Amino acid sequence: MNREPASMGRFGATHSLILLICVLSLGSGLFLAGTPMDDVFALLGGLGAIGAATLTAAGGGRRLAAVFVEAAVRSGVGK
């Protein structure tokens, strides 16, 4: 088997939960500070794009690209 070392941890459920809490907290804080909703969504969308690009670059991107292509093909077929 080809196993990764423990130091090369994977992006798991705990990481997803932490990011979800951070995004919700940041969005709520910006809204309470009086930031217009369009700006809040633009900022959070930009942060999401940066995070996705970072994960793609760190993981080599091949597996993530394969998942996106598979999802696009399945949605096109209607499965």
Rank of each mutant, 00 (worst) to 15 (best):
77 V>L: 15
7 S>W: 11
40 V>A: 02
79 K>T: 14
35 T>G: 01
34 G>C: 10
38 D>I: 07
18 I>L: 15
4 E>K: 12
34 G>A: 05
40 V>L: 04
38 D>N: 10
59 G>P: 05
74 R>K: 11
78 G>F: 03
54 T>M: 14
76 G>I: 07
24 L>D: 04
14 T>E: 09
71 A>S: 10
79 K>I: 15
2 N>E: 10
53 A>K: 02
17 L>D: 07
6 A>C: 03
2 N>A: 08
24 L>V: 14
34 G>K: 07
76 G>E: 03
37 M>E: 06
31 F>D: 02
73 V>C: 02
7 S>K: 09
52 A>P: 00
66 A>Q: 11
78 G>K: 08
10 R>M: 10
59 G>W: 04
34 G>Y: 04
57 A>G: 05
18 I>A: 11
50 I>M: 13
17 L>W: 10
33 A>I: 01
26 L>Y: 04
74 R>A: 13
67 V>L: 14
34 G>H: 08
28 S>P: 00
26 L>R: 02
61 G>A: 09
15 H>I: 00
69 V>T: 13
14 T>F: 11
18 I>G: 00
67 V>E: 12
52 A>Y: 12
77 V>I: 15
11 F>L: 14
71 A>C: 03
61 G>C: 08
59 G>C: 06
48 G>R: 04
66 A>W: 09
21 I>F: 13
61 G>D: 08
18 I>M: 12
47 L>E: 04
62 R>F: 09
40 V>R: 02
